[in-house]
Design a binder for these strands. Structure first.
Lengths: 216, 216
DNA sequence: TGTAATGTTTACCAATCGGTCAAATTATCC
DNA sequence: GGATAATTTGACCGATTGGTAAACATTACA
């Protein structure tokens, strides 16, 4: 008797691994560029170089593909925040967090846009991840920042909004890439904008959070 | 002979004004929540409370509706940046620009998401606006900021990335609203997050841009 | 090498998509 | 009030959507 879906088998064959990899790679391309509703299985099939029913042999529905993609990407995406170290030097931790997030915006813009599309449209498929794992991780790191502020290592500030501001400024270069390029024009055509951004953001955050500023 | 499309008549009737208003209001709802490709004329028709052919009587295509909506909203959306005054006090100008942008994120989140969706998906419908009017406006204001930095009124920094960082941090509260809510949790359920954000961002930018900092 | 499980494809389905058409209804103005 | 223009709608169209059924091809393994 034929088992109808590969996903149901316990042991995964070599072909399964390869094809699922291929499909998710194509799905990342399409979903990140068009959002969930704006993407079609046919598009993904074409990018993946296989027939539509063949995709649906590995993932029963469009939703299942999207879900698998989110699951695969989310952990990696939160890695920089997870690396945030309570024991480290605050200034250096923030600086390297910004740098890491900017590198991810440069090297993995599709992943950034995948989440941006999802959140922008109300996060219908990742609500649980936001309220669960994400919130817990942010709560934990916010506590670290709060302790730094309390002990005077950085200026007193709302740790949540600090994290939001680092997220937004760095991911901006992935999510709003076409706008950034359009405004900067072709004179800044190269990848130098990421280095410029890194310089500016480090200056902004390090300067803005320095405890011994001129005003509280 | 019946003129096939209302848009072609020169004088606009009262009904035309009202209905086009109704339609664009509904279109803003739907496009901002689902993006262009993810939105359907039927959805917009339902929100607008009229039949689909009736929508298409006022706007010949889905694209035409989207275009009209963008045209109507774009000017207003850029108003805060336009108000940026070269003659004013730098610190106060930046502070009030942040405040205005945050107010817009709070009061007009749909407009923010409309553009975010569009830019995120490669700006297929507003490329010209980005490279034209937007770039020119930003170029002009960047020159103002550069002058401030040169005369020592604020720290030396890349004016374009400064503008990007204000855009991203403020619009974040509209575009990524569900994420912000999820992370802050229900204990911060009210609208207080906008005031908290304003406090944090003013502190960050004013502190980060102050010229007489401890290091260059 | 045979055979059972796995993988792939062609043909197809009902639902929905953007959009049209002609007929019906309503508003405007003399 | 009647003619004429403006507005509204139900029925419909071809294309595309997500997804299925079943025949066919390939692989793994005894």
């Amino acid at each position: 008797m034929t088992i109808p879906r590969a996903a149901k088998t316990l042991r995964r064959t070599r072909i399964q691994e390869e094809k699922e990899e291929q499909i998710l790679e194509a799905a990342l391309d399409v979903f990140s560029a068009n959002g969930f509703r704006g993407s079609t299985i046919d598009q993904i099939a074409e990018v993946a170089g296989m027939s539509k029913p063949n995709l649906l042999y590995y993932f029963r529905t469009k939703e299942a593909m999207h879900r698998a993609l989110i699951d695969r990407v989310l952990y990696t995406w939160l890695e920089p925040l997870r690396a945030f170290d309570a024991e480290g030097n605050p200034e250096e931790e923030i600086r390297s967090y910004i740098r890491r997030k900017l590198e991810m915006a440069r090297d993995f813009p599709r992943e950034s846009r995948l989440f941006a599309n999802e959140v922008l449209q109300g996060a219908p498929h990742i609500e649980d991840e936001l309220k669960g794992p994400l919130k817990e991780l942010v709560d934990e790191k916010a506590e670290v920042i709060r302790a730094w502020a309390k002990s005077g290592k950085i200026v007193k500030c709302d740790p949540y909004h600090l994290i939001f501001s680092i997220w937004s400024t760095t991911q901006h270069y992935a999510d709003f890439d076409v706008q950034v390029r359009a405004v900067l024009g072709q004179e800044h055509a190269g990848e130098g904008r990421f280095e410029d951004a890194a310089r500016f953001l480090e200056q902004l955050f390090i300067g803005g959070l320095r405890p011994n500023g001129l005003e509280s």
